[in-house]
Nucleic acid binder design. Structure first.
Lengths: 207, 207
DNA sequence: CCAATTAGTTTCGACTCGAAACTATCAGGA
DNA sequence: TCCTGATAGTTTCGAGTCGAAACTAATTGG
């Protein structure tokens, strides 16, 4: 049964050749995620990086709870990390403790307060909701799943979707080519394929 | 045939309940993407935001090529956008032109130089490669696909994978619980589930 | 026991970003 | 017509990010 499954999926992926599209979608999701984290952190006076560092520390094992590891994980230099950790410590969200074997090493442990904050982070973000929506959607195409996630997130945040013109509810196909139902202006084929800030999805559509 | 398909997928998703995992994966992917864009932009003296703005302008239609739209798309305030666009214009990557109907509006058009730069961006990034790898992978589980993308990207960038301890090639299951093959120290169940900076995937494994 | 290495901190400068004040244009009503 | 309010964009300012480099302290290896 899994065999059949695999074949179907592979076929769809190859046919769609949607790598550049998935690329774009991931980038846009990436941006939105960052904004969510920023907005959340603001409520607690924390910067996005600080939230992410604290989150990492609640998820790593005892070989990986050092400033160096945080830097490797987040892709930041040790200097930058050092400052973020200082803030987290001052706010009572984590404690530092020197390793007994190697006194250069610092072990970082989130306090109860820190752990609770991270719990709230995950709950507070709309991403969880968006992911649930995407997972209950019927598509197996990566680009389509990502698109569902993105759209749900954008709705939740009250952001414009910026979809491709041809997928818009105002897009009208006339005898002499396409027309924008909002401006009543004719659209070239190229226009129709581009992103539009006024884009609105049709009521029923999913893709 | 699609009916069967949908049921299978739904079942797997529900069983796996992998929303939090997908959440994490998206965040880490998001970080990596940002670093790639940063590294790329550096070569041309551009900041990540500037690259993204320019990229948007090569993809949007004529109703959406204004500073305001760029801000909406990237989730930035108009002041911030204004500065980024000024830099792009100074570097000869885009041109500004006032709308003839509404003189408040500015239309932004990437120059040939700008368009070429964006082409190189997409080619230069490892993400395209990673996505291809993911799409040829056999999994249909969102978390698993994302994991493949992430791992491929991390390898391409020479970054540590930070996988869960129990999935590591040094993880050994002994009679009295698990042991880390690197440190020869015993691991609690909790340890085994956490992220480790020394993590290395087994040769053949995919998940 | 000294040199090289590694973990972490501090400092500095370039850059990001939001907020707010500002200019210019447009649209609508008395 | 003029005047008010709204909208597009710019400028300025301050808090914060981040990498680079210099620095301290501890460890490892001839």
């Amino acid at each position: 049964m899994n065999e059949v499954f695999v074949k179907l999926v592979s076929r769809r992926y190859n046919k769609a050749m949607n790598t550049p599209e998935a690329h774009d979608l991931l980038e846009r999701l990436s941006n939105l995620l960052r904004m969510e984290t920023r907005a959340f952190g603001l409520k607690y006076g924390l910067q996005p990086v600080q939230v992410e560092a604290l989150k990492y520390l609640t998820e790593c094992n005892r070989y990986s709870d050092t400033p160096q590891a945080v830097g490797d994980y987040l892709g930041l230099t040790k200097g930058t990390v050092s400052q973020s950790l200082k803030v987290l410590e001052q706010k009572g969200l984590l404690t530092k403790r020197h390793d007994k074997e190697d006194k250069r090493l610092l072990h970082l442990t989130p306090t109860l307060k820190g752990k609770n904050l991270i719990k709230k982070t995950t709950q507070g973000q709309h991403l969880a909701f968006a992911l649930t929506a995407a997972q209950s959607a019927s598509s197996t195409d990566l680009a389509q799943v990502l698109q569902t996630v993105l759209r749900t997130l954008q709705q939740a945040n009250g952001r414009k979707p910026f979809g491709a013109c041809h997928s818009c509810r105002f897009h009208e196909r006339g005898p002499q080519g396409s027309v924008c139902g909002l401006t009543q202006e004719p659209l070239s084929l190229e226009d129709s394929q581009r992103l539009c800030r006024e884009h609105e999805y049709p009521d029923e559509a999913q893709g």
